[in-house]
Amino acid sequence: MRDMLKLFLSVVVFSAVSGGLLGGLKGATQERIEYQQLVNVKGPAIREILEGASNDPLTDRFKIKDGEVERNFFMGVFDGKPNTVVVESSGKGYGGNIGVVVALNLESDQIVGVSLTTHSETPGLGARAKTDPSFVRQFKGLPVKEPPKVKAEGGKVDAISGATTTSRGVCGAVGEALEIYGRLKGEIVQKAKTIKKA
């Protein structure tokens, strides 16, 4: 019995020390990793949905406090007016969280574009949500008032065949982005005024 306890304790101590150290390291590298993801994953996605903007949306970014969390927003300047904001959010997919960026027009309250950032969906099935542009194109022009839904749930979005869970996850993520936008629009408009009209 004493032996068993010793074995048990040694594994527990090993795991605890390892877990503690890794927790610390994760905290220390988090900011740097976020920056890398911003440049490498979100950057191209944001530039893609804000195609034709006269500024660099990655430079014109700001944070707004939303309750407990701080959220990132990116501004796109079109025709000399900073009128398009990019909101980040995520939804539950088949293989974990799906991160999306949603560009919204502040004047017409319409979706300008949607793009996927980080995801771990099945290659060839769910991953087509990112690789096949015809899926995310469906969100273009939808009004911000109603959250998008797949057709099976009475919405307008055609789900990717074989990847209904992924399609629902993307709809959920876009819906969340719209919610954030609705909640913080006042502050976004205020911040947009400070952006230089390059």
Binding site: V11, F14, S15, S18, L21, L22, L25, K26, T29, R32, I33, Q36
Partner: peptide, 17 residues
Amino acid sequence: IVIATFVIVVELMMQAY
């Protein structure tokens, strides 16, 4: 456990740099 710890160290550092 020891090996996994160092592998995660590598993963985090590689992700960061």
